[in-house]
């Protein structure tokens, strides 16, 4: 995130692993949406307007089962509550002088993966810039919407012909998270990460994957309170 004006393209290129990870997931979403009886336009609208993977898959289940509008909306909103923590955590690392003039636009793209990639860049010594955030977020968003478009129009079976490719693309996000974890790893952060990992496993096994993620993040962050 070096010189602000020229940072858009580096941001875009930093989104490459996210693009390759998002496209097949969004593709699967497009396929699932049309199989659930929604039109391709409706599938794309969900990706454009909601832009949150797990919520969108749950939206298909809720809407196709006839759940009331308010119940569906509040369930989906609750799933993304963790995103409240991303902005402040990122800006704390960015520093007090970091600009937020255009945050109303780039912060829309602050998904799990974009947050992780941006935080990793700051941890490696890059300077925060809004054009970098635009580039990073735009690549990911376009891949998500395009993946949905292709999935909704191509239908299922396209990736079934290429199981190894499908598996490799499926490993893109775990590989990205592991790389990011390595990039921020330090002795000081170990207790936070260990507690977060244990709480995630426990929450996922005991309740659900969404609860596991929220519990992991909160438990890890609380560990940060007790350390020196």
């Amino acid at each position: 995130m070096t010189s602000p004006r020229s940072a858009f393209l580096p941001g875009l290129s930093a989104s490459l692993p996210i693009i390759m990870g998002y496209f097949p997931i969004a593709f699967s979403f497009g396929v699932a949406a049309t199989r659930a009886g929604f039109t391709p336009l409706e599938a794309v609208a969900l990706s454009l307007i909601i832009y949150a993977g797990a919520s969108q898959f749950l939206a298909l289940a809720l809407l196709s089962s006839g759940a009331p509008v308010l119940v569906s909306a509040f369930t989906l909103i609750a799933m993304n509550l963790r995103h409240v923590l991303y902005g402040p955590a990122l800006m704390r690392e960015a520093g007090r002088e970091a600009g937020t003039r255009h945050a109303w636009a780039w912060a829309w793209g602050l998904t799990d993966e974009v947050f992780g990639q941006a935080l990793g860049a700051l941890a490696r010594g890059q300077r925060f810039s809004e054009p970098y955030m635009f580039g990073l977020g735009l690549g990911a968003y376009v891949a998500w919407v395009l993946g949905t478009v292709v999935g909704a129009f191509a239908g299922g079976g396209a990736l079934d012909q290429w199981p190894a490719l499908s598996a490799g693309l499926g490993f893109m996000l775990p590989a990205l998270f592991l790389s990011l974890l390595l990039s921020i790893l330090s002795r000081r952060q170990l207790p936070v990460i260990a507690v977060a990992a244990l709480a995630t496993v426990a929450g996922t096994l005991a309740i659900s994957s969404t609860s596991g993620i929220l519990l992991g993040m909160v438990a890890g962050a609380i560990t940060g309170l007790v350390r020196k």
Partner: peptide, 29 residues
Amino acid sequence: ADRIAAGGWLERFLSATGPAAIGTLFIAS
């Protein structure tokens, strides 16, 4: 919101949020 939190317990909470989130997302994935 990070400025509002500066210097207090909330700042320590936020500084640990990033590593906790990335660790969590890796395990969940």
